[in-house]
Nucleic acid binder design. Structure first.
Length: 645
RNA sequence: GCCGGCGUAGCUCAGUCGGUAGAGCAACGGUUUCGUAAACCGUAGGUCGGGGGUUCGAUUCCCUUCGCCGGCUCCA
């Protein structure tokens, strides 16, 4: 038998008989590696350890320490789940079961729905099969023969997949009694799975198509150690504690009212204050950066939206038009046409470009009822929107300025991790987009150039563009590592021509400007939701609706307490007085729960010393501070918009 | 919109195998005047999400509708 030359990551190489398995190679290197290895990467392809190696080339063993290892491991756990489900519920037909960012899922078609108790049973059965240490056995079938086999088993979904995806000879994996059409690779056996948990069941659709039959998706997760699993479950709990919907109610920030309708936000005084502070700051920044503030109507004639193309490309997301005096008006889903009308209101010279129009513009979009979610996904929201009208040669600078502006804004609110995406069109669905292929290529190129020039790493997302142009999206990463899409900078070569925008160039002739749409916080509502979750409601002082609360120890300190409140308020610090007939401890507890950054206790000692006993919400009692010292210190904390102090 | 779950006092929740409901917190009244996370006593509070049906009788069973939650799909 001929030999093959296998090269290891350290550069050394050895000869093995052709057809040697990766496992045998690993064993020859050491029992420890053989025990650790999950799969092998042979010539940059992931293979089962039991697969024969037929050609010379590099090999690398994938162990639990690599991300690829975790993916394979979770995929194998998904098979374990399916094995348990099909054993317990013969009427369940497996669909697909891939790994995800945080675990895995497996979709099943079944008439009856899975209950919580079923999930517990499934998990127990999985543990049983795990202990049995069943191998993941790779089997090859010629397409037709294999398909017949799955037909006999009644697995019509698998047959469909085989029909669509299978190679002439395809692979399947057997785990105990469960056979699955699967490319693999898999870990050697179920005994290698250390820590897993079945999490939940939810509806899904076969192949993600709404019109296709409903599936039940069982979610689970798996880690290499119980500790990692516990940490993950703990993080889920943490995320629940941060839920902005719960905090919004507890901290009286906002509400959504049945009587008014779903997806419509009521900003209560506390939330309203946070919003006011955000907006005031933002407006100052806009003016510093050469933007003009504008305001446009909430409803405008429908024909305007026909001109813009919204009635074609955006209809599903718009509220129905309303009839007014034989004319039809449309609640605005975007601010652009309004800004365009202002631009068009007179002749524009190249000398005044770029024109940057900003509006905290409230828009209404029809979202299907099932997708609404607190502040994160609503039907009416306010964008910190702006449209920049400029000459093509100014475009890249303007886009760059927008991205820089976005980073500056987000870091002010305490976010410092981002993911940047370039959203391009889906070349397979040209009907979703307005404009020509050449225009799109030029536009995508311009955005790509800008990011590359700025040396910002980014991912290109095909099919994520808006109908009028490609965009750059910035996702911020919050305190517990979740990404949120807020900032969007969109290039538009469509609306300027649809509305016949012009500027007079240096040559005295009319030219068509290009447009940039951009929102930095995205929607104020969503941003607020992210902010609440990021800080668990404990906002930095500059954003806190109540920055300090004065707590007189007994009634005789009331007068001094009111004087202190007066002095703080005079310094522009949002201060309240809690002189309720409650014990100090109770009032401190309430203030803590309201996440007020500073509690100011005043008793005899403080009256004496013209001071306040300062308690921080995070670290507790910090002792007495004189008013003369503390007020300027707090003022400076607010003025510098300190995130930590 | 689709699949599944849920809707009981302001909030968090218990309960009724069909005989019109209960706790804690909050609110209100009083007592207490207190030094860094819940003082004590009392009072009041509910068309059991809305509509319809079955029934002598429905908060409970059935249908329908609205809303919420977890997903799918879509997005700021």
């Amino acid at each position: 038998m001929p030999n093959v030359q296998i090269t290891f990551p350290d550069g050394t190489s050895r000869e093995f008989a052709q057809g040697v398995t990766a496992l045998e190679v690993a064993k020859s290197l050491g029992p420890r590696l053989a025990a650790d290895a999950l799969v092998a990467k042979v010539d940059s392809r992931l293979l089962d350890l039991t697969s024969p190696i037929e050609a010379s080339g590099p090999i690398q063993f994938i162990t639990p320490s690599s991300p690829e290892g975790l993916e394979v491991y979770r995929h194998s756990t998904a098979h374990l789940l399916a094995a348990a489900v099909t054993e317990l519920f013969p009427d369940a037909h497996p669909g697909i079961g891939p790994p995800t960012e945080t675990g895995f899922y497996y979709d099943f078609y079944r008439e009856k729905s899975f209950t919580e108790e079923d999930l517990a049973k499934i998990e127990a059965k999985m543990r049983e099969l795990q202990k049995a240490d069943l191998p993941y056995e790779r089997i090859h079938y010629p397409k037709e023969e294999g398909k017949k086999l799955f037909e006999q088993m009644g697995e019509f979904l698998k047959c469909q997949l085989i029909e669509e995806k299978a190679e002439p000879v395809f692979s399947a994996y057997r785990t105990g009694k469960f056979l699955d059409f699967c490319r693999g690779p898999h870990i050697p056996s179920t005994g290698r799975i250390k820590a897993f948990k079945v999490l939940s069941v939810a509806g899904a659709h076969w192949k993600g198509d709404e019109k296709s039959h409903p599936m039940q998706r069982i979610y689970g997760t798996a880690f290499f150690s119980q500790k990692d699993l516990d940490d993950f479950l703990h993080k889920l709990e943490e995320a629940k504690k941060r839920d902005h919907r719960r905090l919004g109610k507890e901290l009286e920030l906002f509400s959504i009212q049945d009587d008014a309708g779903p997806g419509l936000i009521f900003w209560h005084p506390k939330g309203g204050m946070v919003r006011k502070v955000i907006e005031d700051w933002l407006r100052d920044e806009l003016l510093k950066r050469g933007y003009d503030m504008v305001y446009t109507p909430h409803a405008m004639r429908l024909h305007l939206w026909e001109t813009s193309g919204h009635t074609n490309f955006y209809r599903e997301n718009m509220f129905g038009a309303m009839e007014v005096e034989n004319d039809r008006y449309q609640l605005k889903p975007m601010n652009c046409p309004g800004h365009i009308l202002i631009y068009k209101s007179r002749r524009r010279s190249y000398r005044e470009l770029p024109v940057r129009m900003a509006e905290l513009g409230t828009v209404y979009r029809y979202e299907r009822s099932g997708v609404l979610h607190g502040l994160m996904r609503v039907r009416g929201f306010t964008q910190d929107d702006a449209h920049i009208f400029c000459m093509p040669e100014q475009l890249e600078d303007e886009v760059q300025a927008c991205v820089e502006f976005a980073f500056a804004v987000l870091s002010t609110f305490g976010f410092d991790r981002y993911e940047v995406e370039l959203s391009a069109r889906d070349p397979e669905h040209p009907e979703h987009y307005a404009g020509t292929v050449e225009e799109w290529e030029r536009a995508e190129g311009a955005l790509r150039n800008t990011l590359e020039r700025m040396k910002i790493p980014f991912k290109t997302m095909l099919g994520e563009a808006v109908f009028y142009g490609p965009k750059i999206d910035v996702k911020l990463v919050d305190a517990i590592g979740r990404p949120w899409q807020l900032t969007t900078v969109q290039f538009d070569f469509n609306l300027p021509s649809r509305f016949e925008l012009e500027y007079v160039g240096a040559d005295g002739r009319p030219h068509t400007p290009v447009m940039v749409h951009r929102a930095l916080l995205g929607s104020i509502e969503r941003f607020f939701g992210v902010l609440i979750e990021h800080y668990t409601g404990a906002f930095p002082v500059w954003l806190s609706p109540v920055q300090a609360i004065v707590l007189p120890i007994s009634e005789r300190h009331g007068a001094y307490a009111r004087e202190v409140v007066g002095q703080f308020r005079a310094a522009g610090i949002r201060t309240e007085l809690d002189d309720r007939n409650e014990k100090l401890n109770a009032r401190i507890r309430d203030a803590q729960l309201q996440k007020i950054p500073f509690m100011l206790v005043v008793g005899d000692r403080e009256v004496q010393a013209q001071a306040v006993g300062v308690r921080r919400r995070d670290t507790g009692d910090m002792g007495s501070r004189s008013l003369a010292e503390f007020i300027p210190w707090l003022r400076q904390l607010i003025d510098t918009r300190a995130v930590k102090w």
